[in-house]
C-alpha cells in the first residue's frame, strides 16, 4: 500500500488529524467531543501513517510505547479522581478553578486520561496486527 500518493498525503493528513483530535478533546469540555472520540481520530492518524510508512516509522513518532501510554492515561484519570477525596468529598466529585479567565477542572484531566488510555490501547492492538501480518513467524 506504499504508493507515492498515500505517502505524500499521509504526512499532511497526519498533522491535520492530530490537530483535529486535540480540537475534539478540548471541545468535549462543553460540547460533543471528548477524550474517546479524540483518541480515535489520533489513532486513525497513526494507523494511516503506519500504512504508508510502516509500523516502525510510526512507532518512532510516539513518545512512549503504546502500552506504557495506557498506564499514563489511567494514572492521569486516577489523579483527576483524587482531589475530591483529599477535600473530603466523595470520589470523582468535579473540582473547578479559574486560570486567566478559563474555567478548568478535574473533568478535563479525566478526559485527557481517557484520551491517552484509548489511544494507547487501540494503537497497540493495531500495531500488533500490522506487525504480525508482515512478520507472521514472530508470533507463531
Amino acid at each position: 500500500m506504499n504508493t507515492l500518493i498515500l505517502k505524500t498525503t499521509s504526512r499532511f493528513l497526519f498533522t491535520l488529524l492530530l490537530l483535529l483530535s486535540v480540537f475534539l478533546l478540548l471541545r468535549g469540555h462543553n460540547e460533543p467531543g471528548g477524550g474517546f472520540i479524540g483518541a480515535l481520530v489520533a489513532v486513525g492518524a497513526y494507523a494511516l501513517f503506519a500504512l504508508a510508512h510502516g509500523v516502525s516509522a510510526a512507532r518512532k513518532l510516539l513518545p512512549l510505547p503504546p502500552l506504557r501510554l495506557v498506564g499514563w492515561g489511567l494514572l492521569v484519570a486516577l489523579l483527576s479522581a483524587l482531589p475530591a477525596l483529599l477535600l473530603g468529598r466523595p470520589l470523582m466529585t468535579g473540582q473547578w478553578f479559574s486560570l486567566l479567565g478559563v474555567k478548568l477542572g478535574t473533568p478535563i484531566l479525566f478526559d485527557i486520561g481517557v484520551y491517552l488510555t484509548v489511544f494507547g490501547a487501540l494503537l497497540s492492538a493495531i500495531f500488533g496486527l500490522e506487525e504480525a501480518a508482515h512478520h507472521p513467524s514472530e508470533d507463531a
Binding site: 474517546f36 490501547a121 487501540l122 492492538a125 500488533g128 496486527l129 504480525a132 507472521p136 508470533d139 507463531a140
Partner: peptide, 21 residues
C-alpha cells in the same frame, strides 16, 4: 458502544492470534 468496541478490537486480535497458532 465503547465497551462493545473494546471487546471487538480484542476479539479481532485474539482470533488473529488463534488463527496463527
Amino acid at each position: 458502544i465503547v465497551i462493545g468496541f473494546a471487546l471487538a478490537a480484542f476479539g479481532i486480535v485474539l482470533f488473529y492470534r488463534a488463527q496463527q497458532a
